[in-house]
Amino acid sequence: LTDCGRDAFDQSYDKLAVDALRWIGEREGGSEAIAAFARARITAQAGAYRKAVEAVPPEKRTEALAKALSADGYAATARSAPVGEQLCQHHCPVAHAAEQFPQLCEAETEFFAELLGTHVQRLATIAHGDGVCTTFIPK
């Protein structure tokens, strides 16, 4: 089948990912092993995000990160807030796995803080049942 043909059938990628993460947790050290995997995963994706953010002045970095995240399917936007900015991800490609393994969201939040050079605060996540993932970035 072509990719288009395969898309017409049910997929079980989410189940596969959850099963793999559960296996890692059971066999390799529980929650810490899953957190290590989540950090390694975001590190593997970091190159494009880092390149996008470092190419612009500090006041444009949240917007640059949103564009880079959108290129990876997160449908992200950045907007000003009274004392900072909000980064909103309107889609999460790993939401079903993150529902059971919040370490994926936690690693992403840690990475955003490191990348943007400031403390950030996750206000909402799709995996937790919210409509969007929202991260506050203070000025």
Rank of each mutant, 00 (worst) to 15 (best):
L69T: 04
S70D: 11
S70V: 07
A71F: 13
A71Y: 15
A71P: 10
D72A: 05
G73S: 03
Y74K: 05
Y74L: 10
A75H: 08
A75N: 11
A76C: 03
T77I: 09
T77V: 12
A78L: 06
R79A: 04
R79N: 12
S80H: 03
S80N: 07
S80L: 15
S80P: 07
A81T: 10
P82Q: 00
G84I: 07
G84M: 03
G84R: 06
E85S: 14
Q86N: 03
Q89L: 07
Q89C: 03
Q89S: 09
H90E: 12
P93G: 02
A95G: 14
A95H: 07
H96K: 09
H96I: 04
E99N: 07
E99W: 12
Q100K: 08
F101I: 03
P102K: 10
P102M: 05
Q103M: 02
Q103A: 14
Q103F: 00
Q103T: 08
L104T: 01
L104V: 10
C105H: 00
E106K: 13
E106W: 09
A107G: 08
A107L: 15
A107Q: 06
A107R: 09
E108T: 00
E108M: 05
T109N: 07
F111R: 02
F112G: 00
F112V: 08
E114H: 12
L115W: 00
G117Q: 15
G117D: 08
G117K: 04
H119M: 11
H119F: 02
H119Q: 06
V120C: 01
V120P: 00
V120L: 04
V120R: 00
L123C: 02
